[in-house]
Design a protein around this nucleic acid. Structure first.
Lengths: 347, 347
DNA sequence: TCAAATTACTACAACGTTATAGTTACTTTA
DNA sequence: TAAAGTAACTATAACGTTGTAGTAATTTGA
């Protein structure tokens, strides 16, 4: 906070006019004579007057700030969403406040509460795993009901009535699986999370649907459901062993679809140990087009979610609702950001 | 903003007391009788009264908000710093505002200006490439002089007088290069950026120092200086070709030190094409312990910068200065966060 | 020539909060 | 029994802004 910042009052005293006069002059009001106007504007310019936005927020009951609450900050996909929100926010004169829920329901609710205390005009939020697991959406529904708009993205819920921006996980997974099948790989290993992680569940559905549409029998032995919450070194070490074993017991596998790029990275490691060549022996596709997909060897064909677009779309929607005076009459919209497959060396 | 939010005034009217009474009762002032106090507190509790933080900010001339301005949001290292800042900020009751400078001087200055308009009590900032290139720090020095504390991290400058949190890039690079030498790899290819990117320059110095200390002659042919600003697909494709060529012309190379994990990822790709095995034929080490280092095959030995610690340290320093009434008398401190080497399969 | 209109300002309230300075009414104290 | 003290409140100003309403002084019009 500028200690020696200049205010309307200080200008008024200095120039021997009233505060109102200064305020109006700076707004080019015709109520103020050209002479006075110029004098005031010149003084303000020279002294670097900038309106105090806290005072404006209090007066206007608008903070021009939007809050983002995400489960994890250190995450490529979420970072891209923030980037997208930042782009739109900047353009529309909004600032963004960030807070991480750390996949915890309690922290998510706490952040929502504290940031709601007149600090933000609205929220962009992706549900924490714990929130989804407990299906406890009271904090969110309460916030919406009290008049603060929320846009949910990616991890959403049908039990919350609000604007949403989602990725068509089923279709993305379907396309990815289908690509493998088109390349002649019909024995496809799926590496996914347990069902309580909704995106894992949906991507599994896409996989299953692709097999069905191509008359390929579903083989439960080729579906590895792992603990989606664990991202420790040990977990990935065990995952590698699990993959190795699966390949040993199912030598017919010639394709792998992983629901995220971390799992795909581990797959590559396992395949290397098995001396299987990619994509000749086994083709690999994954969801999430992040740095792992781009920089691994071979680079991995991936389903790109357009995180930046998700962020831009969410921000646009939110700001529209914030600035629409009777936003309660605006029907809630759900936008599906379509995915595309970025083909790389692994297929 | 809560439309129907409850204020002291509303409580006062409802309970037929003055606003002052309500304010004092909620603060457990002994000036208010136990009876009235309880009545007011009960009413406030039931109606979910929460003080309006904008009004408090205006009154106290403190926003309890810190601004983070970073060159790039979608970046593992910066994300970790944000995470660290978030941890400390939450603990001390601060919120964080985020803005990306996109490596642009103009945007950096703009963000600093708008967020300074009474929205933030202080800043945590890492210089954009353009800012460093132009050596234009007016916006930053101006902000500091006007009383808003700034903590610089990672990309800092001697021309700015403020608290700083840095990584010992020279030592990290020295250690990394030294590790290769200890493993018997004395012909080490360095992949670095041009000198105007300070961290690239410092890491190059560490490489050179390690060679010198081990009486290894510096071979300019083994130093690739690439355009650190370019991160396009095409650039990395060309980088791969450049690396391939360098290996063809310098068959003695048996170690590689890359100043970031992206370059290291490309190195792995090139080595694979050359049919060189890692770490037997060539060992690889890089700066930046991100997802690429962890998930590539083989996993890459990396210099970990402790981004979270950088964030925690910066936030602690900043908040200390914000809350210290005469922070001008506090001498500026520079903390060096030491790096460690995470050994993996590539060495 | 005097009411009406216009010009160029100022005063005030409000946004929500808190600290300081009153103001009652009642209770001590000498 | 009157001065002093205390308990339990209320009023006011201030943080920085803006919009509405008000007020002089001057100019216009018939």
């Amino acid at each position: 906070m500028l200690r020696n910042s200049i205010t309307l009052k200080k200008i008024a005293i200095k120039l021997n006019v009233s505060i109102s006069t200064v305020s109006k002059a700076l707004k080019d009001s015709h109520e103020i004579s050209a002479d006075t106007r110029e004098k005031i504007k010149a003084y303000a310019r020279i002294n670097g007057y900038r309106p105090n936005s806290i005072a404006l927020s209090l007066k206007n009951q608008k903070t021009k700030t939007i809050g983002i609450i995400i489960p994890d900050i250190v995450n490529d996909t979420f970072s891209k969403v923030i980037e997208g929100v930042d782009q739109i926010a900047k353009k529309k004169g909004y600032n963004i406040m960030i807070s991480s829920s750390n996949e915890s329901l309690e922290k998510e609710a706490y952040n929502l509460k504290t940031l709601s205390d007149s600090q933000t005009d609205g929220f962009i939020l992706s549900l924490s795993k714990e929130t989804m697991l407990n299906k406890n959406y009271n904090h969110i529904n309460y916030t919406i009901k009290s008049g603060i708009p929320i846009v949910l993205f990616d991890r959403v819920s049908d039990d919350i009535d609000c604007d949403k921006v989602i990725v068509d996980d089923v279709k993305g997974a379907y396309d990815a699986t289908n690509l493998l099948i088109q390349k002649g790989k019909k024995n496809i290993l799926l590496i996914t999370t347990e069902d309580h992680i909704i995106v894992g569940k949906l991507r599994t559905q896409g996989y299953e649907r692709a097999l069905k549409n191509n008359d390929i029998k579903l083989d439960q032995a080729l579906i590895l459901k792992v603990d989606g919450d664990d991202r420790s070194e040990k977990f990935f070490f065990n995952l590698e062993k699990l993959i190795l074993n699966t390949f040993k017991n199912n030598s017919q596998i010639n394709g792998v679809f992983a629901v995220n790029d971390e799992y795909a990275g581990i797959v590559l490691r396992a395949l290397k140990k098995l001396n299987l060549s990619i994509p000749q022996d086994v083709s690999v596709v994954c969801f999430t087009d992040g740095v792992i997909s781009r920089f691994s060897s071979p680079s991995i064909t991936a389903v790109r979610q357009h995180g930046i677009e998700i962020g831009r779309n969410s921000a646009t929607k939110l700001i529209e609702r914030i600035e629409n005076d009777d936003n309660h009459n605006l029907p809630y919209r759900v936008d599906v950001i379509s995915t595309i497959i970025i083909e790389r060396e692994s297929t």
